Amino acid sequence: MDANVRINDPREHVNEEPRNDLFDLIAGVAGMAGLMTVIFFGMVIFKFITE
């Protein structure tokens, strides 16, 4: 009884996308810092407008 089974070596990593993890980390930290800076200055302006 011969079964046609294709065994993949898990070390091949055929489904992995090439990524630059360091760039992703830097972009995430910079993006969050930029968002928090915008929110901070927005709240400061809002505080001065409502006084």
Score class of each variant (00 low, 15 high):
10 P>S: 02
48 F>D: 10
11 R>G: 07
3 A>F: 11
49 I>T: 11
37 T>D: 03
15 N>C: 11
45 I>V: 10
5 V>W: 00
47 K>Q: 05
35 L>K: 08
42 G>T: 01
23 F>W: 11
50 T>A: 11
26 I>H: 00
30 A>D: 04
28 G>W: 05
16 E>K: 11
26 I>L: 13
32 M>Y: 10
2 D>W: 01
7 I>W: 02
43 M>C: 09
31 G>V: 01
10 P>C: 03
37 T>Q: 02
35 L>H: 04
19 R>E: 14
37 T>G: 10
24 D>G: 06
34 G>R: 03
43 M>V: 04
42 G>P: 01
42 G>A: 01
51 E>H: 11
26 I>N: 02
6 R>W: 10
45 I>C: 06
47 K>M: 08
49 I>Y: 14
31 G>I: 01
49 I>K: 15
13 H>V: 05
35 L>E: 05
6 R>T: 14
36 M>S: 12
19 R>N: 04
41 F>Y: 07
35 L>Q: 07
10 P>E: 04
31 G>R: 01
1 M>F: 08
50 T>K: 13
11 R>F: 07
5 V>I: 15
10 P>M: 04
39 I>F: 08
41 F>K: 00
34 G>W: 06
51 E>C: 04
21 D>P: 00
45 I>D: 05
41 F>M: 06
22 L>M: 09
26 I>P: 00
51 E>V: 13
8 N>M: 13
29 V>Y: 08
8 N>H: 15
2 D>T: 05
14 V>I: 12
38 V>I: 15
50 T>P: 00
30 A>G: 04
42 G>N: 02
15 N>Q: 12
15 N>P: 00
45 I>T: 09
4 N>G: 14
13 H>S: 03
19 R>T: 09
33 A>C: 12
36 M>G: 06
29 V>I: 14
3 A>D: 06
46 F>C: 04
38 V>K: 10
3 A>L: 13
29 V>K: 08
33 A>Y: 06
12 E>C: 03
10 P>F: 02
39 I>Q: 02
44 V>E: 06
31 G>D: 02
23 F>N: 04
47 K>F: 10
39 I>Y: 05
15 N>S: 14
18 P>N: 11
23 F>Q: 13
5 V>L: 05
29 V>H: 02
35 L>Y: 14
43 M>R: 08
33 A>E: 10
48 F>T: 05
17 E>G: 00
43 M>Q: 08
44 V>I: 13
19 R>P: 00
46 F>A: 14
37 T>R: 01
49 I>W: 13
17 E>S: 05
6 R>A: 08
15 N>G: 15
